[in-house]
C-alpha cells in the first residue's frame, strides 16, 4: 500500500503515460477491494443477524406450531379471525401507546427545550444533566422502580394521595389506569431525548431572525409560529418518526410493569409476541405477531430515510 501511495506522489513526473493509467487503475481496484474488506464485518453482521432473520421470520410465520408443516398464511388468518379478541386489543393498545406517548414526549420535550433555551451558559449544563437522568438509567431498572411506586400493597403514590385526603388509585389494576401508567412511564423515559434534539435545533436557529422579527414588532407567539417551528420542522419530523418506530416496538416497560395485564389489555406487539412465541412456545405464531409490525415500521422508516437523505444532500451541496 505504501508503494501505491508513493506512486501518486512520484508517478506523474517520471513514468510514461500508458503505465501510469494502468497503475492508477490497479491502485483504484486495489483501493476498492481494501474498502470492501473493511466493510466486510459490517455487511456480514447486518446480513447475518438483521436481514436474514427478517426473512427467516417470514418463513417461520408460515409453519405450524410444531414447525413441521407449511401452513401458508394460516397464522396471520388466525390472529385476524379467531385470535382477534386478544390480538385486536394488541393492535389497538400498540397504536394508542405509540401515538399518545410520542405526542406527549414531543410536547414535553418542546416545552423543556424552550425553557432550557432561556438559560445560558454553565447553568444550562447542570439543568440538562438533571433532566437527562430518566434517559440515562437503564430502562428495565427504572421501570422496576415505577412498578414499586405503583405497587398495590404499599404504593408511595397512593400514600401521598391518602395523605392529601384523596382515595387510592389502583394504578395497574384496571384497564385504562394501566394503559395510562404505561404511557406515562414511556413519556418520562423518552421526553429528555426530544429535549436535547429540540434544544440543538433551537440553538441552530440564527439569532438575527428573531431580532428582525422583534424590530417588526412580532409577539413571542408569532416568533414561535413563523420562525421557530418552520426552522425546526425537519428535526421535529425526524425525531417524531424515529420515536414512533422505537415506541411502537417497545418491550421493556409493558413487560415489567404489567406483563400485558389486566386481561391482556396492555400488551404491545413485542410483549404479545414474546408471550406467544417464547413463553407459550408457539414460535411461528409469535413470529407472525411481530411481523404485523413490519409494514407499519417499514412505512415509517421510508419517511425517515427520505428526510435524512434529503437533508444530507442539502448539507453536501
Amino acid at each position: 500500500m505504501a508503494n501505491s501511495a508513493m506512486m501518486i506522489g512520484s508517478g506523474p513526473a517520471t513514468t510514461p503515460a500508458p503505465r501510469r493509467v494502468g497503475s492508477l487503475k490497479r491502485l483504484a481496484r486495489r483501493r476498492s477491494s481494501i474498502a470492501l474488506l473493511l466493510c466486510a464485518p459490517l455487511i456480514l453482521l447486518i446480513v447475518g443477524l438483521k436481514v436474514y432473520p427478517t426473512f427467516y421470520a417470514m418463513f417461520l410465520s408460515m409453519l405450524d406450531r410444531k414447525m413441521t408443516k407449511f401452513v401458508g398464511l394460516d397464522n396471520f388468518a388466525f390472529l385476524l379471525d379467531r385470535g382477534w379478541h386478544s390480538f385486536g386489543m394488541v393492535v389497538f393498545q400498540s397504536c394508542l401507546f405509540a401515538i399518545t406517548a410520542v405526542i406527549m414526549k414531543a410536547l414535553v420535550g418542546f416545552i423543556l427545550a424552550h425553557l432550557m433555551h432561556n438559560i445560558r451558559g454553565k447553568n444550562q449544563r447542570i439543568w440538562r444533566g438533571l433532566l437527562l437522568v430518566p434517559w440515562v438509567i437503564p430502562l428495565a431498572l427504572s421501570t422496576l422502580t415505577w412498578w414499586w411506586l405503583f405497587d398495590p400493597s404499599y404504593s408511595a403514590f397512593n400514600w401521598t394521595l391518602n395523605w392529601l385526603g384523596l382515595d387510592s388509585i389502583p394504578f395497574l389494576g384496571t384497564t385504562w389506569n394501566a394503559r395510562i401508567s404505561v404511557i406515562a412511564v414511556n413519556v418520562w423515559f423518552g421526553a429528555p431525548f426530544f429535549m436535547i434534539m429540540y434544544l440543538a435545533a433551537l440553538k441552530s436557529v440564527p439569532e438575527q431572525l428573531y431580532e428582525a422579527a422583534a424590530i417588526d414588532g412580532a409577539t413571542a407567539w408569532q416568533k414561535l409560529i413563523y420562525i421557530t417551528l418552520p426552522m425546526m420542522r425537519n428535526i421535529v419530523l425526524i425525531t417524531v418518526l424515529y420515536s414512533l418506530i422505537v415506541t411502537f416496538a417497545d418491550f421493556d416497560i409493558v413487560r415489567i410493569l404489567t406483563n400485558g395485564g389486566p386481561q391482556n389489555s396492555t400488551h404491545l406487539f413485542a410483549t404479545f409476541a414474546f408471550n406467544v412465541g417464547i413463553e407459550s412456545g408457539n414460535i411461528p405464531r409469535g413470529a407472525s405477531v411481530s411481523l404485523f409490525m413490519f409494514p407499519i415500521l417499514a412505512a415509517l422508516a421510508f419517511f425517515v430515510l427520505r428526510d435524512v437523505l434529503k437533508r444530507s444532500k442539502e448539507v453536501s451541496t
Binding site: 424515529y242 416496538a249 417497545d250 425517515v304 435524512v308
Partner: peptide
C-alpha cells in the same frame, strides 16, 4: 441507517431459532 430502524423486538423470535 435502515437497519438501525429495525427494532430488536421484530427479530427476537427468528433469532431464538437461529
Amino acid at each position: 441507517f435502515l437497519t438501525y430502524l429495525v427494532p430488536p423486538s421484530l427479530l427476537f423470535i427468528p433469532l431464538f431459532q437461529l
